[in-house]
Structure formats: C-alpha cells, structure tokens
Design a protein around this nucleic acid. Structure first.
Lengths: 219, 219
DNA sequence: TCTCGCTAGATTGCGTGCAATCAAGCGTTC
DNA sequence: GAACGCTTGATTGCACGCAATCTAGCGAGA
C-alpha cells in the first residue's frame, strides 16, 4: 500500500522526465488529480515537492508550470552539481566500504558493455547504471542534507536525456572517469577523488552546452 | 493580505528559531492550526516546507517533530555551508555592483559599532547585520538554486544564537573577515573571495564546536 | 483604433468531515 | 510473572465544497 502523495509525485515526475509534459506547460491541479486517480490534496503536496526540486514552478493563485530551462540555468546547475558531487566524493573517500567499491567496479564493467558501439548499445541502461554509480558515491558520503541538495540538481540531466547526446569519445571518457574515481576512493585519497569527480561533471557540462549550442544553431 | 500558508510558516519557524518549540518536541497539526488561527491544510503545507529546510522531521502517520541536532550534524552542516558560501563568493566577485560593495562597507562599520565591547554592545543587532552582509553576497551570486540551498543550511546557526557564544577575539576576527571579503570582491578576485569566505565559515564552525564541547563537559 | 473597465468562467486557497493508521493501556494465556 | 493480542483514543491522510483570486473576452468611451 502506497500513499496517494507518493503515487501522484512519481507519476507527475515521470511525466516531466519522459517529456510527456513539455517545459512551460501548465499543470492544473484538477487535471492532474484525474490523471493520477486521486484528489487535488495529494496533487498539491506533490507539486510543492516538485517545486523544491526545481522541476516545476508554482505561482500563487496561478498554478504550476513545468520549469523551462535556459542555457544559463544549465550552466549554473552544472557548476553547482560539480561542486556538490566533488564534495560528496571527498567525504566518500574516507568512509566507503570495500564491498561498495567492488560493486562500483562491477557497474563500470556493465557500463562499458552497454556503452560499447554496435547493436548491443543501450543508452537507457547506461543512464540507469550511471545513476547507481553516483548513488553509491552519495550514499558513502553519509550526509542526508547533501543528498537532498544533489537530488535538486541531478534531475535536469535526466530531463534532457544526457547520454543520447554523448559521442563515442565522450562515453569512453565518462567510463574512464568512473574507473579513476574508484581507484581514488580505494586509495582513500579525498583530494584525488574530489578532483576526478569535478572533471567528470564539468566534462558532462561541456558536452551538454555544445549540444545546446548546436541545436539553436541549426534551428 | 497574506496567504495563510505563509502566516503559518513564519509563525512555526519563529517558534523553532526562538526556542519556543524545543528540539524533539512533537508538533501536532491541530495544535498548530489553533496556534496560527488557521486550519490544518495550510499548517500541513508549512510543515512540508520546513521539512525541506531541515527544521522539522515528519514521519508518515506519526506527525512532525522539531529536528534535534547532534554535534556530527553541526559539523556536516558547517562544512556544507563553507562550500556553498565560498562558491557564492566566487560568483559574486565577477558580478557585484559598486553600490552593493559600498553598502557592505557600511554594514561592516555598523557591525564594528554594535560588536564593540561595553554597554552599547548589541549582539542581536550584530546577527541582523551579519545576515544582511551575507545576503548581499548571495544576491550578487545571482543563482536562485544556490540561494535556496544556502537557506537550508543557514537556518541552524540562527537556532543556536551563534553570536552569543563568540568571544571578543572571535567577533573581531569575524569583522576582519568581512572587510577582507569586501576587498576581495572589489578587486574582482574570485579565488581570494572564495578563500576568505571559506575561512570565515570554518572559523565559525570551530567556535560552535568548541562551545558545544564545553556545554556537554560542564553538564 | 486604442485603451480602459467590467463581467464571466475557471482555478487556486482554505476549511472541514470521514476513513485509515498508529500508540497505549488492558486483559488473557502460557 | 511475562508476553502476546485486542480494543480504544487520538492523529494523520485524503476527499470535497465554498469563497477568493486571476485570466480572458467583450463593450464603451476617448
């Protein structure tokens, strides 16, 4: 048995992440209540939650809209994320358990497999594994507040389906970063881990910004 | 005319910050509705908001409690804050307007006055001015998301009435940091600004941790 | 023709009732 | 005497209704 709030939250969130609700689209409470087969009360709470995470904007007496990101937002968010993830990596270096490190190595192998060129390539699986990898780092950082903040800035990359914009070289570099991070964590070197993680996120930012620039150019 | 949610939010928040509601205390919705002279609906929304900011914890079907901080929480929060404020200072270095810098200098003068020893000392006024000073930095950083995150980690220092634990030397150092930060921002030196801000926050952390240690010792 | 004001429809904000869930106290059984 | 289960009281979670507010469209006046 799940709470209606969680049900509504998950449904609306997925609707935004999969692009079913476009940026700027208006989200009426009554409409969402019907969609989620609940009432407006849990929908309201779910929208508040999503507002905190930055996925929707709600204006008093005017309802909620799906957040529309600008290129400047994107840059700002990735800079924030770089800092937060680097901090998490540093903390993780002093706390992570060997079994988590082993699992991270496994995830790296699976990612190489799913990211490799050819018919077996599965970018959605890569996204999933990537989320697990970074989740392990955050969990090892052991800071509930940090995790909350990261959740707020990590949603966006999902919206824009990051990995579908990666070139083969970008993907290879990303996987290499992951392996290097595991090495840094295994060595217990906080500075190294922090540094690799920062590179990792900033590289992702560069890919995204270039992709965004290309899009507006060809338009 | 203000919204009932905001009214309830402000009232409950003040109740926690001023210590009227003690850490660990149970906060019943009905009770708060009566206290704020509204109904349970806006109270519920206010509690959710406060949960996001870390001031209360709400458990499903069991209601809300005022968050009880441990020494480890305190350390974690100050490390987070050091990083976030440093980041804000760096961004501010490239964007802040001369008139804001002038105002910051004014605030420094006023703080020296209010912090000075003797009968004119007014630590609540220092707290107020300190908030304005840091607010100017954050505003200059021009990142809505960063401001949201900082709000989440800046609440705590208010709860424990930080400045009342400062020695004369601590206060003097804090004011010196402020002046140095203004200099760094005026020079447009992001690295310098970031560095000063980090020192500033970590120094505050040290004062608080020592004070906390003393308290548990004499108990 | 442009601007301002008004009206109507729709939507959010809030109050309240009812059902689901939880904690505590009591009684029963081993 | 201790442990388990049940019942009762209290509290949260959810649904729905009404009032306050906003947006859009129309009409009157300059």
């Amino acid at each position: 048995m799940v709470r209606a709030v969680d049900h509504a939250y998950t449904l609306i969130r997925d609707g935004i992440l999969t692009g079913r609700h476009e940026p700027g689209e208006r989200l009426g409470e009554a409409e969402l209540a019907e969609l989620t087969e609940t009432s407006r009360t849990p929908v309201r709470e779910a929208l508040r939650q999503l507002e905190m995470e930055g996925l929707v904007e709600v204006l008093p007496h005017r309802g909620a809209r799906v957040t529309a990101w600008t290129a400047a937002d994107l840059e700002e968010i990735y800079d924030l994320r770089a800092m937060l993830e680097a901090f998490a990596a540093e903390r993780a270096a002093g706390r992570i358990e060997p079994k988590d490190l082993d699992r991270m190595t496994e995830v790296c192998d699976l990612m190489d497999e799913a990211a490799g060129p050819g018919a077996t390539q599965d970018l959605d699986r890569v996204t999933e594994l990537n989320a697990e990898f970074h989740g392990l780092v955050r969990a090892a950082a052991a800071s509930t507040r940090l995790v909350t903040m990261l959740n707020a800035v990590v949603q966006l990359p999902l919206v824009v389906r990051t990995f579908h914009r990666y070139s083969a070289a970008d993907l290879a570099r990303s996987c290499a970063h992951h392996r290097e991070l595991v090495a840094a964590l295994r060595a217990g070197d906080g500075l190294w881990a922090q540094s690799v993680m920062r590179s990792h996120v900033l590289a992702a930012k560069a890919v995204l910004l270039r992709a965004a620039a290309d899009e507006t150019e060809t338009r």
